[in-house]
């Protein structure tokens, strides 16, 4: 069985598993990192959204063999550390806005939000309603409006 090695939340991990197993299952079923959630396995619901080298991606759609030794995967569990604080400003904004209902989609929503803000920032602009309209993450509890408020608040503190 092949061994795969990458950096997960700041620490090197090695996993013995078949090449084609999608990273979501390596994280959840093998490594026990359960923050990224399953909602479709089809790159549709975005519940599994995490970061690869600082950008948003969907581990349900990436075979573990596609990762290289130096790739850095950050899940919701590792987000705060990237800001050097107990909580990332976006997580704080989520708490202040009391966004969550069941919470199942929220790790993915937060990871999307952070990447979205950073992407806009890299383009030298701030987020607009049109950007919010493009967010694909499902929230079946319908917290969409508070998500918009929280992203705006979190962005201001990032």
């Amino acid at each position: 069985m092949p061994t795969h090695s990458f950096i997960l939340n700041g620490e090197r991990v090695s996993v013995d598993i078949e090449d084609d197993v999608r990273l979501l299952w390596v994280l959840r079923d093998v490594l026990g990192v359960t923050g990224p959630k399953y909602g479709c396995g089809l790159r549709v619901c975005m519940a599994c959204t995490s970061h690869l080298n600082g950008k948003a991606f969907n581990p349900c759609s990436v075979p573990v063999s596609a990762l290289g030794e130096s790739d850095e995967v950050t899940t919701i569990e590792g987000l705060a550390a990237t800001s050097g604080q107990d909580l990332h400003p976006m997580q704080e904004a989520w708490i202040d806005t009391d966004v969550a209902q069941c919470g199942y989609c929220q790790p993915g929503q937060i990871m999307t939000a952070v990447a979205k803000v950073e992407q806009a920032r890299a383009e030298g602009r701030s987020l607009t309603d049109a950007d919010f309209d493009e967010i694909r993450n499902i929230c079946r509890c319908g917290t969409y409006h508070r998500i918009r408020e929280a992203i705006a608040a979190g962005a201001a503190k990032m």
């Binding site: 084609d20 999608r22 690869l52 991606f57 349900c60 990436v62 596609a66």
Partner: peptide, 13 residues
């Protein structure tokens, strides 16, 4: 049930 996509790295944002 459908198979999961494998092109996730083409959609990093």
């Amino acid at each position: 049930i459908p198979q999961s996509p494998t092109d996730g790295l083409d959609h990093v944002s």
